[in-house]
């Protein structure tokens, strides 16, 4: 519904304006590096939702794409001296390329098997990053990634936020376009009923693969920008908890809502930041508890629930109107692992 609104209605333009205003005002409200973190994680979460919410595949290995792009973007910036947007694009393309063989093998499976295969590949990437010290720095990480573009120094976090934000916005725009395209329509039909999509003549596995690769590209954009923003790429970027974090953000925000991932990311990053500065070392317990409460109380996530509250008023405008695919956060078969049905 919100997506439809974004396509042109007054309410959609209003929401879009609010969203853009918040994105632009963020470094004034909170510590700028945290603002950049939120933006990167938001794009990462949206990339996971593209698979989870719109293709019905739960990837538990998206750190492979976020993290490998972090390293590749960093290496391109350090050794080739590319301006950072080009380095990030290079990292994202690398993520998309490695997603082809991984996806090729994984999309034949579904549900928990898909999640396990993606996790296994992500662990392989982690292993490589850990062992290949000469290139990745091993446990020390890849350090000293320059934050500059055409010789202009961007080490000021406040300035960098505004230079980096367009990459995130373009990524979000691409995700929105994918979901609201003929391709997105086919994806949703595959999510809801793969056999039927096959009987209509759609090669389901190849559609899933393209969705997987596009999702990896978006995750790569986010991860590359994250590494540039921090000035280093560490093993944490390819660790499995990073994949888990992204999935958690999507579930918190609302599976299949696209923008829910943005809200989930803002919430989790802020919370982690707040808790880590409060000398309390049980962060996992707090975020875990909040996660459980939100999943139990708002089954469709924060955005999904908010949208449902708005929905009755909007439905009256279009009597008998059909909801389009993708408008409803129908839980795909895969997410049952995380969310109680």
């Amino acid at each position: 519904m919100i997506l439809r609104l974004l396509a042109g209605s007054a309410r959609g333009r209003l929401l879009l304006a609010i969203g853009l205003f918040l994105a632009l005002a963020l470094p004034w409200m909170i510590y700028p590096p945290i603002a950049m973190d939120i933006a990167c994680w938001a794009l990462f979460a949206v990339s996971v939702d593209l698979l989870l919410g719109f293709t019905g595949l739960l990837s538990f290995g998206h750190a492979a794409f976020w993290g490998s792009s972090a390293y590749v973007s960093g290496l391109l910036a350090v050794h080739v001296g590319l301006p950072f947007p080009v380095a990030v694009l290079g990292g994202a393309l690398f993520a998309a390329v490695i997603a082809v063989p991984i996806g090729y093998l994984a999309v034949r499976l579904s549900g928990i098997y898909f999640a396990m295969v993606t996790l296994a590949f992500a662990q392989m990437i982690y292993f490589i990053a850990n062992q290949w010290r000469d290139v990745t720095g091993g446990e020390n990480g890849l350090q000293g990634i320059p934050r500059e573009m055409f010789g202009v120094d961007l080490s000021d976090s406040f300035v960098f936020y505004y230079v980096g934000l367009p990459i995130v916005l373009l990524g979000l725009l691409l995700a929105w376009r994918i979901v609201r395209s003929p391709f997105g329509r086919v994806l949703v039909s595959i999510r809801d009923n793969p056999s039927r999509a096959r009987a209509l003549g759609y090669p389901v596995d190849r559609y899933r693969l393209l969705s997987f690769v596009l999702s990896a590209f978006l995750a790569g954009l986010a991860g590359g920008l994250f590494a540039i923003s921090h000035g280093f790429a560490s093993l944490q970027e390819v660790y499995w908890t990073t994949s888990g974090n992204a999935v958690m953000m999507v579930v918190l925000g609302g599976i299949g809502t696209l923008w829910g991932g943005v809200i989930g990311a803002a919430l989790v990053v802020q919370l982690n930041d707040y808790l880590s500065t409060s000398e309390f070392d049980g962060i996992g317990i707090v975020t875990g508890s909040i996660f459980i409460v939100i999943v139990l109380v708002f089954r469709k996530g924060i955005w999904g629930t908010a949208r449902d509250l708005l929905a009755p008023r909007l439905k009256r405008k279009r009597p008998g109107g059909a909801k389009s695919p993708g408008d409803d956060p129908a839980p795909a078969p895969a997410p049952d692992v995380n969310a109680p049905a």
Binding site: D192, N193, S195, L200, A322, K323, S324, P325, D327, D328
Partner: peptide, 14 residues
Amino acid sequence: SLFPQMSARGHLEL
């Protein structure tokens, strides 16, 4: 075997 949320017309367009 249908797509529950898709309109009848949406099915045929697909």
